[in-house]
Design a protein around this nucleic acid. Structure first.
Ligand SMILES: NC(=O)c1ccc[n+]([C@@H]2O[C@H](COP(=O)([O-])OP(=O)(O)OC[C@H]3O[C@@H](n4cnc5c(N)ncnc54)[C@H](O)[C@@H]3O)[C@@H](O)[C@H]2O)c1
Ligand SMILES: NC(=O)c1ccc[n+]([C@@H]2O[C@H](COP(=O)([O-])OP(=O)(O)OC[C@H]3O[C@@H](n4cnc5c(N)ncnc54)[C@H](O)[C@@H]3O)[C@@H](O)[C@H]2O)c1
Lengths: 217, 217
DNA sequence: TCCCGCTTGTGAAAACGTTCACCTGCCCGC
DNA sequence: GCGGGCAGGTGAACGTTTTCACAAGCGGGA
């Protein structure tokens, strides 16, 4: 869509998401223009970074003025592929699955959960959100979903991934804490809360090795 | 704990978590030794990367042989700060909060949720997991928690963060999709599922602009 | 005991991402 | 319509992370 087959860094994309969110807010507040400096908002992003990120995709600002909020919002929306709706198949109607289904934010961003699958007889047939939980055995018959979400226990994750790929999804969001194998051409993203906890625990034990206000370890 | 005040890259730490997980598995299977090549396991990490990561913290392997699984597991455990228990205060007993409380994995890794807070009268007083949900107004009286988890709606997130900091936590895991301000010395990690979805949507719209097997856009 | 194949640990090189610094363009006030 | 100040775009410098490549160490077999 841009140049030939240029790839953009993961971090740039994550920051685009961030800019988009800021723009949504600022737009709601009625602001018309915003500077790269304000877009950066928090000190871990510099204004130069903002401008560089945006410049990979085009020239959206006006010198001396900044960026038009409405315009930039529309542009980033298009870049992130949020100017359309995505059909999502969710596998695993447990805690995480239920949380996702209950979350309005996703629908608002263009993500529609069009099918939910589970293996437990207790869950199959129940209505969750506005879709009926289907038997995982029916997943191969699922059509039209571009993305899959894996919210099953670890042991089922790889098998489910294979089924999703067979059913034709091109991207998978995986909540199970395990690296999955997917064929080339299939995009995989992991949400790994365990890792975040461990990262916290690492930093905290670095900065002060022992519990506060207690004797030795 | 290592040299003077050397900092390690975020990615190194995330990979350590990954290695740790692989080691747990391999350990359970009864393997005694493992090579850096096998530790990398998936093609997006090279064996050189594994060795470099580990070398930041010491020399744990033996040339010609690889790493002793049990030993390396213990070492990484200590590096990540998982050789102790962490007290966690959870704020927001909604979908995400409930999912976290129900998840055995965290307890197994050494994270104990010692207190849960919510603002909704419907939730306060209910028992979730094995703790009673308390009124958020009681958070300032909470003592001894080293980490806080924010699982409230976005609008409450910053206020909750401030309260957690006041209550003495040194690290915060934030599920609300907004950048939070925290004082220096407080470690903040964000789990942002929306961003992951957007990242998927970006890649998918790059690789093939239109839905598969359907006419126009 | 000595050699060979295997695998680590690590400097050096390469790739990558971020920051700097400056030129350009634009608006506004005079 | 002219000048000053503001703010975006961008090549180059910089710093960090990853990869490369190889010497050094180890075990096992002859
Ligand atoms: N809950 C958390 O806080 C948390 C935190 C970190 C990671 N995770 C991971 O997220 C995943 C989901 O966690 P959860 O808490 O929602 O688990 P859960 O047990 O609440 O739900 C899992 C669901 O998957 C279903 N399932 C099992 N096997 C299946 C299969 N083969 N096909 C289809 N469905 C199947 C189960 O019936 C259940 O409904 C797990 O892999 C877990 O490790 C969860
Ligand atoms: N559910 C998801 O799949 C999902 C996905 C992405 C992001 N998030 C984010 O995670 C956060 C939690 O999501 P959720 O689905 O669990 O929401 P939820 O509505 O199920 O739960 C939120 C809980 O926070 C409580 N709460 C509200 N204000 C509070 C306050 N000031 N102090 C203490 N408690 C308060 C509410 O009573 C409720 O119990 C939200 O910020 C949401 O944007 C959720």
């Amino acid at each position: 869509m841009t140049d030939p087959m240029k790839r953009f860094s993961e971090s740039t994309i994550r920051r685009l998401s961030h800019y988009y969110r800021v723009l949504e807010e600022v737009h709601a507040e009625g602001q018309r223009m915003i500077s790269s400096h304000l877009l950066a908002e928090r000190e871990d992003i510099t204004s130069a970074q903002v401008r560089k990120d945006l410049s990979y995709f085009g020239s959206f600002g006006r010198r001396g003025l900044g960026y038009n909020v409405e315009h930039l919002r529309t542009e980033i929306r298009a870049i992130l592929g949020l100017d359309r709706r995505w059909r999502v198949a969710l596998v695993g109607a447990g805690h995480i699955g239920a949380a996702l289904l209950a979350y309005r934010g996703f629908r608002d961003q263009g993500f529609d959960v069009v099918a939910v699958f589970d293996s437990s007889p207790e869950r199959i047939g129940k209505t969750l959100g506005d879709v009926v939980v289907q038997d995982i055995a029916k997943l191969p018959e699922c059509e039209g979903a571009e993305m899959g979400v894996i919210a099953t226990p670890v042991r089922a994750a790889q098998e489910v991934a294979d089924m999703l790929v067979a059913a034709g999804v091109r991207g998978i969001l995986n909540f199970a804490p395990r690296k999955l194998r997917v064929p080339e051409g299939i995009t995989l993203r992991n949400v790994d809360m365990t890792m975040e906890f461990e990262s916290l625990s690492f930093v905290l034990s670095q900065t002060r090795g022992k519990p506060r206000r207690r004797a030795g370890e």
